[in-house]
Design a protein around this nucleic acid. Structure first.
Lengths: 246, 246
DNA sequence: GCCGATTTGTCCGTATGTATC
DNA sequence: CGATACATACGGACAAATCGG
């Protein structure tokens, strides 16, 4: 379902880079060449390139060309990588591992003052409270504590939570995540972490708090994920100019 | 030094959002309105908005408008925040804290096989090897192990490393970081960490590995930073569509 | 439910500036 | 200097989504 031309070009170029057709340190064809290849305007080519730049795949150099910075990641050191906006299920599929979700808590409650301040929910709002353990290759590696706003997510069941909640939200309720704010910190393992995860001798873990907004700009999900250190990895790319020059 | 019109508009809108003129959940003026306000084309307005979307400040909703998602962060919980591309010095200044850098190792060496594989440098390349401890408010909080490619950075001194290396590179050598790839993991503290940092009872820390490319697309810096858990925080925003639709 | 106005999303063409070679 | 390549900016056109009458 190609919904945009620049998206098609983005994916095509990305594939050509990943497959080695445009190797590390080489220059991709010039914008004008790509205009001819894809039969589109320069504007459209530039939008596709902008996506690759943001993804860290290439770097544009004025007057020279667009250089490939992508190199395949050694698989051994990438058991579980964050970076893009994807669900646990998508991540597991991408990594080709067996996965499983266990719901260890499910209830309905209301936000109190402290929780509202931390999450961004309005105080006294009705929310679902779900706690899940993510299991990869038989090892419990993530403990996720989630809250869903009932005014946006009116019905939620432990069964849906056991599967992919996002698939359920999108297909059954028509709720889509449009924007997502994430914060990563390192914190000491709590008793709950030790109870549910195979912490071994580790006493800290990676904590990712996530706020998700739907298409109406309403904050409807607040999730705190506790990752086992050995299964946490986050990748990121930053470019200096060309975007905002702050 | 306003070097681009869309940059000016981006900064102006950002300021208006931060100052509360466009409050949380409100809609900023429509694109056509902004075109009239700033006397520019719609394309230019849209690029400014694209920057705000990527920064997580706003969310565009087709047919409705552009909604403000920004809310000021509680200062108490933000001692030291990564997220943008900035140097230690810039971060310290932004957080209005006293800071200090101690160079604990300085040498010239060559990359061996394992190091080359991890860093991305070519094997056998001449590099500077620098280890620095970052001190904030009297507490040693970051241990940084850096390697600089000598073919790009021909001269480097312990004195320059004690100050801001990036300022030195940019002003003295004309070397600029254009693209930067970052990976965040959580790892067990090493003896070196315990030696230099006030680890207390923590046995893990946040590890940020960084690869920096210059304007020619050459990888010239590889840095591994070990952050004390209490002083590490990373923020991020993701948007679903409008960019690449992968 | 329909229609029209508004608003954002996509795409095109063109022109000019700036950096590299 | 000229040719090439990316950066910025302008203008116009149509599609898709939203909302109100």
């Amino acid at each position: 379902m190609p919904r945009s031309k620049f998206g098609d070009i983005y994916r095509d170029l990305k594939y050509k880079i990943e497959s080695g057709e445009y190797p590390y340190q080489s220059l991709v064809p010039s914008e004008n060449t790509l205009v001819a290849v894809y039969s589109c305007s320069r504007n459209t080519v530039r939008r596709a390139l902008a996506g690759l730049i943001e993804a860290g795949y290439v770097q544009a150099i004025q007057g020279k060309g667009v250089r490939v910075l992508y190199r395949p990641v050694p698989v051994a050191r990438a058991p579980f990588t964050l970076g893009r906006m994807e669900s646990f299920r998508e991540t597991a599929l991408r990594c080709r591992t067996s996965y499983q979700t266990r719901v260890v808590h499910f209830s309905m409650t209301q936000t109190d003052g402290a929780m509202a301040a931390a999450s961004g929910f309005p105080p006294g709002a009705d929310v679902y409270h779900v706690e899940r353990v993510r299991i990869i290759d038989g090892r419990a590696m993530v403990l996720e504590v989630s809250y869903f706003l009932r005014s946006v997510v009116p019905t939620l069941t432990p069964e849906a939570a056991e599967q992919s909640i996002y698939a359920y939200l999108e297909k059954e309720l028509g709720v889509q995540i449009m924007t997502s704010k994430r914060t990563i910190t390192v914190e000491r393992a709590t008793p709950a972490d030790r109870l549910y995860l195979d912490m071994g001798s580790y006493d800290c873990l990676a904590v990712v708090t996530n706020q998700a907004f739907n298409a109406d700009g309403i904050l409807f999900e607040y999730t705190v994920s506790h990752y086992h250190p050995e299964y946490f990895r986050f990748q990121d790319t930053a470019s200096r100019r060309g975007k905002k020059a702050e």
